[in-house]
Design a protein around this nucleic acid. Sequence first.
DNA 1: AGGCGGGGTTCTGTATACAGGAAAGCCTGA
DNA 2: TCAGGCTTTCCTGTATACAGAACCCCGCCT
Lengths: 216, 216
Amino acid sequence: MRASDRAYGSLRADILEWRLPPGTLLAEVEQASRLGISRTPLREALSRLVAEGLAAAHSGRGVVVTAVSLAGVVDLFEVRLPLECAAARLAAARRDPAAFDALAERFEAAGALISSGGTDQHAYYGLVAELDAAIDEAAANPYLVQAQRQLRTHLVRARRLARDNPGRLLASAGEHRQIAEAVARGNPELAAAAVTIHLSNSLHHLQASVPGPLDA
Amino acid sequence: MRASDRAYGSLRADILEWRLPPGTLLAEVEQASRLGISRTPLREALSRLVAEGLAAAHSGRGVVVTAVSLAGVVDLFEVRLPLECAAARLAAARRDPAAFDALAERFEAAGALISSGGTDQHAYYGLVAELDAAIDEAAANPYLVQAQRQLRTHLVRARRLARDNPGRLLASAGEHRQIAEAVARGNPELAAAAVTIHLSNSLHHLQASVPGPLDA
DNA sequence: AGGCGGGGTTCTGTATACAGGAAAGCCTGA
DNA sequence: TCAGGCTTTCCTGTATACAGAACCCCGCCT
């Protein structure tokens, strides 16, 4: 694997998991030495992060990790709603029923697991990512996939703004089960409605759990 | 201005205007010498083009200009429809009425100009770009703007697939006037409907004017 | 005659050296 | 004491040199 790829993945993970919090200055020589590579591949990694919106080039000052604000999250959901609805509609029209039936069952099982207290948040988000990937694959539209990938990247970071509690996780599992079932049934409008409900609840939970505008 | 920016802009324009047709191999040394710069800034430009989807990295073989297919255009419109509708809805809700009234009048004038035979296709597309920019500004959503920018880039290239005739241009001017008027009136659903009509007609015209799948 | 292997060539990927510029800090003068 | 300008010191942006890898072509073996 190329050094620039490794640097990109490492920096991206560090930013997404808040090990590099918003506002952090990513100096070239410092990061290059930290990652054990030269400035050239590091610059390529940084430019990718800038293109992705995870960092911004402060002219003459280097690149800094971009901020995450509640207002930005509202903007994010304004775009996510039509995009995820479109993806769900396409997926419902072109799906493989068995795959989404299986996912619906796994969300039901995840709900039961959450209810019993055995909440594994990380594993749950992994399951959500699997549903997203299945919808992307069923939608079979590269432009849609790319746009979704961008938005989901920012979503991962925004999740840290909210404090997920078992109650919300349980509701989320139910909503995702509804989405998977609607897609499995091949009903585009039902799938879009299920996505609308889920995103509305997600945003509402986020807004409710963040008291003020935290720019960090 | 930075050399990498100039190289990026130059290559991007060359690809969008088919001076670098799909399938062209962009060898680093060749392009660097052609543009009169070193390989380092050229590589940055190429990586940006790859991120944008205008070029693809053929592993170990350099990057090549990506193909434009009719199937790809359909995919493009599948994403454009929900995104442009969302933008129109937001713009209608947050607009500056005067700006969109002025744009509506300019589209009416453009229609009259097209009818009289004085068709300046390039100027007309410039006016379309102005409306797009006004909608972006009114929508005031950076994520939406970024997603739109990506799609519109590919749209510019796809336009070459169709042979625009004065009849289609006249209809397009009328459809754009409808969009501008709907936004000016502050009616989100009307604006979304106008966008839906325009995109449906645009895609239909594209599909009708391209006989077979031309990958070029 | 066809397939396979080896050498050569050319490419990308990476490291490093150099130049230009911007920001911060300090010194001086009012 | 404060403001302004200068200097210093980084850091970015660019060029170039080097190494590894892939591909192609030619010759040889079957």
